[in-house]
Nucleic acid binder design. Structure first.
Lengths: 191, 191
DNA sequence: AATAGTAGTAATCGGCTGATAACCTGTCAA
DNA sequence: TTGACAGGTTATCAGCCGATTACTACTATT
């Protein structure tokens, strides 16, 4: 699973960092914070393990950067979806547009899972505040972009967390295991 | 955080297993599967690390047993809540009763977090099927106990996942950090 | 009292993992 | 061409962690 396009060339540090962030999203999404090694991230990007630590300082800092990268991409997606709407669109239509955008994100799987894995580290005092801040930031962004009230936004967030959970469970890939699974997935990953 | 009441006595294997499961719920809830060591679990219960492995076979088997123990306790809670209702209770009232029961579970924090940490391991082929089966089992139980249709049960599950997420984020303990946090928590951890 | 089985520990180990240090190498300005 | 800096690597380590082995100690039956 090599991310590189050109055959192993030198890059600027900034380019390499972005490439490593993409690699880290993939790795952390699969195995979480403690379950992922810096060497796994390095191999995906095609660099040596010590270089990853040199660029980011520590595994914790790498995870934090990865998490914030993922959060930014999700926020960008919401903003882009809101931008396609006419200025006089109603709240329900706005919520629906953002919901569809989130469902498309769910097909990548990695971005959402990095976020959720981040949430699971909130017991760590060094990570918790950043995780909470991010969740709240997204909540506020949705409210701002849609004009929804607290209840509507809460329901939107709830649906979002269920989608994320089903993605984490790989439920869409195992619909045949149980009819109830197909039912739940069908009613959740739809308009 | 010692679980033992009597001053270090011998127990039957069955007693010790139950005690270790409670200890494991606490440990895994905090740090997840890969982030928790078998030694941490052993220390909480006041036994040696090799003994934990002898009783459960492997760390993976311990986690699986812990996960299923937590899932059973959650199912028991739902069943108990449904049992308090009059036989002719309406679907919305039934859903509300189960929702309140889940909110009370959320005060323990550990049971819900073990479940969520379990979901995050679903990428592992050895664990994924069990995790999916459990989620579906709870979904089906809620539907059976309440008589709700697919949409209602989906909304119940969605709300449940948001509650679980906020608990994972330790959001109720940090309401002062942001007014939006207080707003979201208030609207989510209420009737 | 002997014996047998069950509860539990001490000692140890191989492999992994994050981190550090020291060194190499491509590129570009003067 | 010669620096000199930025982009990398190799080598290495200390500590941890799951697992195994071999041993000890309590308890109950006969």
């Amino acid at each position: 699973m090599d991310d590189e396009t050109a055959p192993r060339r030198r890059m600027t540090a900034a380019q390499r960092e972005r490439q490593l962030l993409r690699a880290a999203v993939n790795a952390f999404a699969r195995s979480g914070y403690t379950g992922t090694t810096t060497d796994q991230v390095a191999r995906i990007a095609g660099v040596s393990q010590p270089y990853v630590l040199r660029l980011f300082g520590s595994k914790q800092a790498l995870f934090l950067a990865t998490y914030q990268y993922a959060a930014s991409r999700i926020q960008d997606t919401f903003r882009a979806a809101a931008a396609t709407l006419p200025p006089d669109a109603e709240v329900p239509d706005r919520l629906k547009a953002l919901g569809c955008a989130y469902l498309q994100l769910a097909q990548d799987r990695d971005l959402l899972l990095v976020l959720l894995h981040g949430f699971m580290t909130a017991a760590d005092p060094a990570l918790g505040p950043a995780m909470r801040r991010c969740m709240i930031e997204i909540y506020r962004l949705v409210r701002t972009l849609t004009g929804a009230n607290a209840e509507q936004t809460r329901d939107f967030a709830a649906r979002g967390m269920l989608i994320t959970t089903l993605v984490a469970l790989r439920m869409p890939d195992h619909l045949n295991e149980d009819p109830a699974a197909a039912e739940l997935v069908h009613h959740t990953l739809q308009p």
